[in-house]
């Protein structure tokens, strides 16, 4: 089993009000089979035993699906490997002696709560604004009553794969959330079940994203390459299209 030694320059911040600072920590004897979060676990165990406060970081599933984990490693959200969340990033992608700068996702809409933990509730607010199909329990028609072309269902699934981690916002030079919003608008808008509310949905969600203080998309496409689920910017274009249609041609205001 190969092991490596690393130097971590890691962001420490006690509370949203605290100014925060970088702290340098050594991570010794890290097995290359560990995941990045397991590496942090090891560092945290040592910090605890040394009587210091461990590093706070969000995580839950550790399988790359819940979207809870995430940090910026050497300038890259979720680290250097494509299509991979931080919890699925393994230490074999680093070399002995590397120095890693570990920072929280940064955006005005994502306040730092503590260390690497940020508040991403702005994304929920965007969903509350319109990210749903209003179908009360019990009123659904027979599932096969409306056929959906396999290709359309796949396209919707491509968008629905979004785990809401916020890496798109973290990666975007403008801290824009348009990949997230685009994915949600596409997922629901592509399906026939989502069409009745499509116009209302896209207007409400785009406006809410603005209200939450995300930046504007300038099509830099960093989001697409950093997205752990490799969601395409075609979804942003689809949202733009829906938005124009809704704003100009629909009766929604």
């Amino acid at each position: 089993m190969a092991t490596i030694d690393l130097t971590l320059k890691i962001w420490r911040q006690n509370s949203p009000r605290d100014k925060g600072r970088f702290e340098t920590l050594a991570a010794r004897g890290i097995s290359t089979d560990m995941s990045f979060l397991e590496m942090l676990d090891v560092v945290n165990e040592q910090l605890t035993l040394d009587g210091r406060e461990p590093i706070c970081f969000d995580h839950d599933c550790r399988e790359g699906i819940c979207g809870m984990c995430g940090a910026v490693i050497n300038g890259r959200p979720h680290g250097p490997q494509r299509g991979t969340t931080l919890c699925q990033l393994h230490m074999r992608h680093f070399a002995d002696g590397d120095t890693l700068a570990i920072e929280p996702f940064r955006a005005r809409a994502f306040k730092v709560v503590k260390d690497l933990v940020v508040d991403r509730s702005a994304l929920d607010k965007v969903m509350v604004a319109g990210g749903y199909i209003a179908a009360n329990t019990g009123s659904a028609p027979e599932a096969n009553a409306t056929p959906i072309a396999a290709a359309t269902a796949e396209l919707a699934m491509d968008a629905a794969a979004c785990i809401g981690c916020g890496a798109c916002v973290a990666a975007c030079p403008n801290a824009s959330a348009m990949l997230f919003v685009g994915a949600k608008v596409s997922h629901l808008g592509l399906l026939p079940q989502g069409r009745p509310e499509a116009a209302r949905r896209v207007l409400a969600m785009v406006r809410e994203a603005d209200r939450q203080g995300f930046g504007n998309c300038t099509n830099v496409t960093e989001c697409e390459v950093e997205c752990p689920k490799e969601i395409s910017i075609a979804n942003i274009a689809r949202m733009n299209r829906e938005f124009l249609k809704a704003a100009i041609a629909s009766r929604e205001r």
Binding site: Y132, S139, A140, A160, L188, L191, Q193
Partner: peptide, 9 residues
Amino acid sequence: DQCVAAGVP
């Protein structure tokens, strides 16, 4: 039925 109506792809 319910899930399809809610947009599960």
